[in-house]
């Protein structure tokens, strides 16, 4: 078992998950709340990592972080072959899952409830905080777990931008690849088991969080009691 890789993976995933929460929520809010003509383009770009081969993503990240990019030339920020590069790769691959799930949950919140809150004196920020996000919380959390699990499993792009330096930038999925390459199968077995368990627990949670249909609607009536019956008990 490659413990340094394990701990590094946990750290990278933790930071990436926080980034996914912040950027994913912001992006989902932007996509559901703001009406702008070019928004569908932004959405498509955010979702692109779902379908692009990891090597393509890695290539773009090399362009972004490597020599000749504005980041290096103008700001002298050198992230290539460092842990932050792994975080960026993990964030970008996890983000689309978070955005999709959050977006669906936010738009499933009945606008009548938000209107009701408006007439009850709430500002837009307050409505978001007290009504919309609490009602969409299951979808947001499910998206976050999915995104986090995807970040934990990020392999291809990470391999290209971290340089696979054992003990320094080698994450667990890359370490597994390394172990198989050098035929250390016992090592690989254990790490595969750990990865599978983590993914299983994550997905299990997501399944439990997935709301039954109509979860976010304003409460509707199942049975209609007679008015007098209802008051008689009081």
């Amino acid at each position: 078992m490659n413990w340094p890789a394990f701990w590094l993976s946990l750290q990278v995933t933790a930071i990436a998950t926080i980034a996914i929460l912040i950027f994913g929520l912001a992006a989902a809010l932007l996509l559901t709340r703001v009406r702008l003509p070019g928004l569908i383009l932004i959405e498509t770009i955010i979702l692109l990592p779902l379908v692009l081969p990891p090597s393509v993503l890695g290539y773009y990240l090399l362009l972004l972080l490597g020599r000749g990019s504005p980041l290096v030339e103008w700001f002298n920020v050198r992230l290539l072959f460092t842990v932050p590069a792994a975080v960026i790769a993990a964030t970008i691959t996890g983000l689309p899952l978070m955005v999709q799930s959050t977006r669906a949950a936010l738009s499933a919140v009945d606008p009548v409830l938000e209107n009701a809150a408006r007439t009850l004196g709430s500002s837009e920020i307050e409505i978001l905080w007290r009504i919309t996000i609490p009602l969409a919380r299951r979808g947001i959390l499910a998206g976050l777990i999915l995104g986090g699990a995807r970040a934990l499993g990020e392999f291809g792009a990470t391999l290209m931008v971290t340089g696979n330096i054992p003990g320094r930038t080698q994450t667990l999925p890359v370490a597994i690849y390394d172990a198989v390459q050098s035929q250390r199968y016992a090592d690989a077995h254990l790490m595969v088991l750990v990865m599978t368990s983590l993914a299983f627990v994550g997905l299990f949670w997501v399944r439990r969080l997935e709301p039954p249909p109509q979860q976010y609607r304003a409460a509707t009536t199942r049975t209609e009691e007679v008015y007098d019956e209802a008051t008689a008990s009081h």
Partner: peptide, 20 residues
């Protein structure tokens, strides 16, 4: 004047109670 400052009570057809 925004809705929140008009102080007008609105009772909706779908009840619109906050389910949470």
């Amino acid at each position: 004047v925004p809705a929140r400052k008009r102080c007008i009570g609105y009772v909706f057809q779908q009840y619109a109670l906050f389910p949470h």
